[in-house]
Each structure stands twice: as structure tokens, then as C-alpha cells.
Amino acid sequence: MTQRSAILAALAFLMPALVSVFLLRLWPAAVAVNTSLIPPGGGGYSLENFRYIFTDPVFLNSLKVTIVFLLIVNPLQIAISLALALLMNTMVPLIGFWRTVILLPVAIPQSVSAVVWGVALRPDGLVNAVLVALGMEPQRFLTSSDQALASIILIVSWIGVGYWMTFILAGLQDIPKSLYEAVRIDGANRWQQFRFVTLPQLRRPLTFVLVANTVANFLIFAPVQILTAGGPEGSTDLIMNTVYTQAFIISDPESAAASTVVLVGVVLLIVILQFRLMRAEDSNE
């Protein structure tokens, strides 16, 4: 086979995927960049739209809410996933089944989870019934600007932690048993085994989960749009909801394009990091 025929064959095999990359990612990205650089009144390229969104209180509030959300939800989900993985890394009857139960929420559409939790979080819903049964005060949850973001965090964590647990569980099962035996001979207790063997050995899966989890949480949309529409008082106005509102509710395509460029720019940086973490494993190629 010649070099030329290999190139032609590769091109033929890659063509459908290359067309999809172009149509579904590169072209829309180019359109967003182009639109973002043309101010509403026209008149040549400028950064006017970016200046506008970065002085728009709604957009700035949305950035703030998104950052607060990420700072809480990422460590929380990683801690819970790690705890679940440690708990589930054992041989008890039906262990595959118990793991699946925790993984199930991720397979259900987020809109369904949002709707079901929305009913459960109503003032007369299931969650308050449980709180009252436990002797606590009923809460307002999604209708309170103090509790709405926490409620969204609860919902997306219920959805996601089983998924992230799966990565950490796989990492745990890759740790050579001999490492534990070695430190046990040195008299390490359970905490020391965790601290000096488990955690360092989990560095890669944990980093990967942190990065992939950040992308996923950055783009949370369905629960917000369905349950709060960003409210009350903008307290749950995550960035995807703001972009959606700019584009389709208040019909401001220029601001929506500028916000999309910011959004895709941030996501691109995180995804490149994610790709490098995925790649490190086949560096032997």
C-alpha cells in the first residue's frame, strides 16, 4: 500500500466525522465569534458586546452565581463520590446491584429528575414530610432565594455522584495490593493507609473527575430552567440559563453570542485539560 492510498483511505473513513466536527462545532463557534464582534447597531467589528455584557448586572450576577455554585458543588460531589467509592469497593452480596442503584439517576433525563424533585421539594412535598418526621422545621427550598441554589445543588448531586463514583471505583481497583501490605508492615493504621497509599494513587482519577465534573456542572441547564428560571431574585441564574434567556426570552442575539464566546472559551480550556488527562495513559503509542 502506498502513502497516497493510505491518506485517501483515512480521508474516506474520517469524512463523516470531519463533516460533523465542522457542522456541529467549528461553524457554530465561528458564527458565535463573528456575531459577538458586531454591535447591535452594526458599524464594523468591535468589542462593544463584550463591554456591554461585562457591565450588565444580570450577566455579572450570573457569573457570580455560577462561580459560587461551582465552588460548592465540585468539592461536595467529589467528596461524596470518593466516600461512596470507598464504601462500595468491597465484596458483599449483590454489590453490582447496589452500585447500579446509585448510578441510575445519571441515566434518567435531567428534566425528569428536575420535575420529580420539584414536586418532592414543594412545601407539602416529600422532603418536608421527611424533615417534619425527623423533628425539623419544614423549609421553603426552591421558592426561597436563600435555599434555591442549595436545592439545585442537592438535585444535581443526586444525579451525578454515582457517575463520578464509577471513575474513582475503577481507580481504587487499580491500586496494587502490595502497596497496602508494604505500609501495613510498617505499622500504618487505616487512616495512614488511606492518606499515604489510597489518596496519592487516586491522583489521576480524582483530577479527571474534577475536570470533567467542572464541565458538566458549568453547563447545568434543565433543572434551573424548569424549576426556578434563574430565580428567586437571580439566586440560581447559572450561566447557561442566562445565555438561553438572552437568546430566546429577551431576544438579544449580540449579547447571547458574546456570552456564548465566553462560555465556550472557558469550557474549551477545561476540555483541553481533560483531554490531556485522558491522553496520558496512551503515551506509549
Binding site: 466536527v21 457542522l23 456541529l24 462545532r25 467549528l26 461553524w27 457554530p28 463557534a29 458564527v31 458565535a32 456575531t35 464541565v215 458538566a216 453547563l219 441547564f221 447557561m240 445565555v243 438561553y244 437568546a247 442575539p253 447571547a256 453570542a257 456564548t260 462560555l263 465556550v264 469550557v267 474549551l268 476540555v271 483541553i272 481533560q274 483531554f275 485522558m278
Partner: peptide, 18 residues
């Protein structure tokens, strides 16, 4: 892979126009 890893929702608004 990087292009496809960008979650599709991020680019949904301009793609909708196309």
C-alpha cells in the same frame, strides 16, 4: 476529540441559527 468533548449545549445557540 476536543471539539466533540465540548458539550453540545455550550454551542447550541449559534447552532440553532445555522
Amino acid at each position: 476529540v476536543i471539539s466533540f468533548l465540548i458539550p453540545f449545549d455550550a454551542i447550541a445557540v449559534p447552532l440553532y441559527g445555522i
